[in-house]
Design a binder for these strands. Sequence first.
DNA 1: CTTAGATATTTATATATTTGTATAAATTGT
DNA 2: ACAATTTATACAAATATATAAATATCTAAG
Lengths: 101, 101
Amino acid sequence: MKINDLTIEQLEKAASMLKAISHPVRIAILNHLENGKKSTVTEIHEALGIEQSAASHHLGILRNNDILVAKRDGKNTYYFYKHDRLNVLIDCISKCACEKV
Amino acid sequence: MKINDLTIEQLEKAASMLKAISHPVRIAILNHLENGKKSTVTEIHEALGIEQSAASHHLGILRNNDILVAKRDGKNTYYFYKHDRLNVLIDCISKCACEKV
DNA sequence: CTTAGATATTTATATATTTGTATAAATTGT
DNA sequence: ACAATTTATACAAATATATAAATATCTAAG
C-alpha cells in the first residue's frame, strides 16, 4: 500500500479523524484509554472532572470518527480504542507536546 | 518521562499541534514533505494545485504550531519538518485513513 | 531606486465548534 | 409500573476556523 499519495477522500478522512482527536479533553480521554483500557462515560466524567454531558459529547465525537468504539453492558457503555494503531499516534503527539511545552 | 499524565498545558499544546495538522490540504502538504524533503511555497502551491496565498497560509499555520520550520534562501523560503517524529504521526494517520475509506 | 519574483498578511463572509444547562432516553432493581 | 442510574441529545451564546480575493512585504538583480 502506498501511503504517500492519498486520494482526496483519504485526505479528508485523515483530517476528520485527526480533528476529532484535536482537543485537550479528547486527548486526555485517549490517554486515559491507552493500552486497551475500557471505561464508562461516568468513569471518564469523574476521572477528568468534566460535566457528564461534556464527557458523552466528546466520546460521541471520537466514536463518530472511528477513533473509539462504544459497547453497552447493562446500564453502562464502555468506550475503547477501535484500532491499536492509534496508541502510536497518541504516544507520538504526547511526546511532541512534552518536548515543547 | 511519563507520557500518560499530561499537564493541561501539554494537553493544549498537543491539541493545537494536532489541530494544525487536521486539514486535508495540510495533510497533503505534510505527505509531500515526508522523509526530510524541503519545498518552497511555490513548489507546494504548484504541486498541490492551490492558490499561492492558500499555500502560504497553510504553511504559516504549520510553522506557527511547531510542525514545520521555514528557512529563507534568497527569494525562496524552504519549509520542512521540525521533528522527525512527526513522520510517524503522518504515516499513522494516513494508514488509518486508507484502512477506512 | 526600480522592477520582478516570491512570500505573507489582511479583510470579509460563511461555517463550525465549544460549553453549560436542561432534558430525554435506556436499563436495572424494587 | 416506578424509581434510580447511566447515557445521549437539544439548545443557545460565545468563540474559533475556513475560504477567497486583494494587497502588502521581502529579496535579488539591474
